[in-house]
Design a protein around this nucleic acid. Structure first.
Length: 157
DNA sequence: GCCAACGTTGGC
DNA sequence: GCCAACGTTGGC
């Protein structure tokens, strides 16, 4: 069982959107980065847990916890010319992009804002807090996972 | 809205 | 295979 962090822009698809889905479950589509594709296709397993991170918004931070509930499988939005995620170089015979299904476990009691995450020395190695990082999905160590969960109830620092 | 950082593309 | 140009990400 592994831990992850997955970014999404709340104006496009935030934790409230996932909460409104049937079974609070949806597919995590639109990933168009090879490193992330490989993680979703090869490493994620049902039962893995992930933080749901809100990016590119007024207060970026960790909003909740989701569970991976499927293996990686081809991202069909890449096959759809009408989709904004359409990629003519991906086809069902030889899919280029993959996605997983996720289910909302719970929202955090408070959103943990990025500046707080940056200020926690236990998280210094996370790609999330490193300059110039652009991974939208990244692994989280058990130690980092515990450190973040501890911040949920500890308030500022 | 700006812009730094980074990944991808394509000419050569 | 190099690398400049371009597009995207995402914090601020």
């Amino acid at each position: 069982m592994r831990y992850w962090l997955m970014k999404s822009e709340p104006d496009v698809y935030g934790i409230e959107h996932l909460a409104a889905e049937p079974d609070q479950t949806d597919h995590w589509d639109g990933v168009r980065n090879y490193q992330v594709r490989n993680m979703m296709r090869d490493e994620m397993r049902p039962g893995d847990l992930a933080f749901f991170y809100h990016s590119n918004t007024k207060v970026p931070g960790i909003a909740g916890i989701i569970e991976i509930v499927s293996e990686g499988y081809p991202d069909h939005t890449a096959f759809d010319p009408e989709s904004k995620y359409y990629d003519p170089k991906s086809d069902p015979e030889n899919p280029r992009w993959y996605m997983v299904d996720v289910r909302l476990v719970r929202r955090l009691q408070r959103l943990i804002p990025l500046p707080e995450l940056k200020a926690n020395p236990a998280l210094a190695d996370m790609p999330l807090v490193r300059k110039g990082n652009r991974l939208s999905v990244m692994p989280v160590t058990p130690e980092q996972w515990a450190a973040i969960l501890a911040m949920e109830t500890s308030g500022e620092q």
